[in-house]
Amino acid sequence: MATWTWFHKLASPPYLYRTAGRLLPWLAIPAIVLTLAGAYGGLVRAPADYQQGEAFRIIYVHAPSAWLSLMAYTVMAAAAAVGLIWRMKLAHALAAATAPIGASFTLLCLATGSLWGRPMWGTWWVWDARLTSQLILFFLYLGYMALHSAYDDTQRADRAAGLLAVVGIVNVPIIHFSVYWWNTLHQGSTVLRADGPAMPPSMLVPLLVSFAGYTLGYAALACVRLRAEVLGRERNASWLQELGRG
């Protein structure tokens, strides 16, 4: 029972607001350091790929943003599910805080995929399975944000958009499967394979550092946005008065 107190505490707006604020520097500084280190490692330290040459260095932006886009959607749907099941207002705040971050990194993943595809495939866009399912994921994010902004009342917006996120996460595996199935039938093997079977450590380490940096970056950004969402949902509470004095 005692192990659950932290969970109940998180349901208290002032506690969550302060915790997110306290965590922020501990997430933001490592995020910046790791992301810069990953970029440095990727651009300078990693050797050029023997097949793709220097163009391969785009992976240090492309793969972490692809990971972040999927992870953010999972976080969003999980938070929305918690919010719907236990009627936890603040879980919806996390879902709403996550959506724009996830959408922006999905867009980054698409743009860098296109930039990578140009020298590798010779065109800016190829209907590759990964890129196509990322595009659909981007549409799912847009749907969440559009539905959320279509309601004037925040609580209803939270619950309607949250339900959409949950329905979306049930569909994400189906969409992935169908897109891969469609892709293998329509074209041969793809050139762009992010997960080569054996990557030497000099290539792998910067990639892992970038993954860690992007993930922490998401967490830091989510903290800032979460605080904003908490404030937006707590217009009249008395703890806000202390905020003004402190």
Binding site: G53, E54, L115
Partner: peptide
């Protein structure tokens, strides 16, 4: 290695 016009915009976009 000739790919600068694809690599640098990627990092700039990031």
């Amino acid at each position: 290695g000739g790919y600068g016009r694809f690599v640098w915009p990627s990092y700039a976009l990031a």
